[in-house]
Simulated scan of single mutants.
Amino acid sequence: MDTFMTPSNMPMKKATPSFAEPHLQVRNIALTLFAEQGYQSVSLRKLASALGIQAGSLYNHIASKQDLLFELIDEHETDLLDAIEASVRSNMKPAEQLLAYIRTHIDFNVKHAHRRSITQLEFRNLSPEQQGETLAIRNMQADILSNIIQQGIQQNAFNPIRFKASETLLLAMLNEAAFLVSTDGNTVLDDIIVSLQTIITSLLVRTPTSRRLAAQ
């Protein structure tokens, strides 16, 4: 029976009891390799070598490389959705919900930079069915933002806007902010979050001046 090994030069997370489970170890090594070298560049042979086992033995732990990729992407998108749902509470005002959404989205993606990178860059390597499942989760994330904006407009807290275009722009800004923090060592997470909150708030939140202009 193959024994899993972790090469000393392989960047790894600190081992935990659950990490000893073979499938989780395959996932963890694959996550690092996919993020650092690219999904297409990581063959099953290379993955098996990093694990210290024979390539054929991988099929004892995964169905295929593509299914492994989908599992990593699906987990990231689902966990992000759960984090957003937990932070955006119904008893908050729309402006408070918006700030919670912004902070959670950026903070989560920065803390899980490898998973975020794979999710964004390797989506094209999923099957059409897998892409559909991933997009369904992303749509649920976007729906939360849509509802926040809609409620803010209905409550006269946000400026009336071109709805779908603004939602797409906001999500692009959030993703770019997370990428910036993850790749630029001089960029501070809290600074980015505060700056983006200020920009988005100034665009959406109705001020006394914007209300007077809208009434004219």
Score class of each variant (00 low, 15 high):
T3S: 10
T3F: 08
M5G: 08
T6N: 05
T6L: 08
N9E: 07
M10C: 08
M12Q: 08
A15M: 06
F19A: 03
A20V: 11
A20P: 05
E21P: 02
P22V: 00
H23Y: 14
V26N: 09
R27W: 00
N28Y: 08
I29S: 03
L31M: 02
F34L: 02
A35N: 05
E36P: 01
E36H: 05
Q37N: 09
G38F: 10
S43N: 04
S43E: 07
L44Y: 03
R45G: 07
K46R: 12
K46N: 14
L47W: 02
S49W: 01
A50L: 01
Q54R: 15
S57G: 14
L58I: 01
Y59I: 14
I62R: 02
I62G: 09
I62Y: 12
A63T: 05
A63K: 06
D67L: 02
L68T: 03
F70S: 02
F70N: 01
L72M: 02
I73Q: 04
E75Q: 11
H76S: 10
E77M: 05
E77I: 05
T78E: 12
T78P: 11
D82E: 12
I84M: 06
A86E: 08
S87P: 03
V88R: 02
V88C: 12
V88P: 06
R89C: 12
R89L: 15
R89W: 12
S90P: 01
N91W: 14
P94S: 01
P94V: 04
Q97M: 07
Q97G: 10
Y101N: 01
R103A: 02
R103I: 06
T104K: 15
F108K: 05
N109T: 12
K111C: 08
A113T: 06
R116Q: 08
S117F: 04
Q120T: 10
L126R: 03
E129N: 06
G132P: 11
E133Q: 11
E133Y: 12
E133D: 09
L135E: 11
A136E: 11
I137P: 07
M140H: 09
Q141D: 01
Q141Y: 03
Q141F: 07
D143L: 14
I144V: 00
I144P: 01
N147K: 08
N147W: 08
I148P: 01
I149G: 09
I149H: 07
Q150L: 15
Q151M: 08
N156R: 13
N156C: 05
A157L: 09
A157M: 04
A157P: 03
F158V: 10
N159S: 08
P160F: 09
I161Q: 15
R162G: 03
R162A: 11
S166I: 12
E167V: 15
L170V: 13
L170I: 15
M173T: 14
M173F: 12
M173G: 13
A177D: 01
A178N: 09
L180P: 10
V181I: 10
T183K: 02
D184K: 13
G185M: 09
V188L: 06
L189K: 10
D190T: 12
D191G: 06
V194E: 14
Q197M: 11
Q197K: 13
T198Q: 07
T198Y: 00
T198E: 07
T198C: 08
I199V: 13
I200T: 08
S202M: 11
S202C: 11
L203Y: 04
L203H: 09
V205R: 05
R206N: 14
R206S: 15
T209L: 15
T209I: 00
S210C: 07
L213K: 13
A214E: 09
A214W: 06
A215M: 14
Q216L: 15
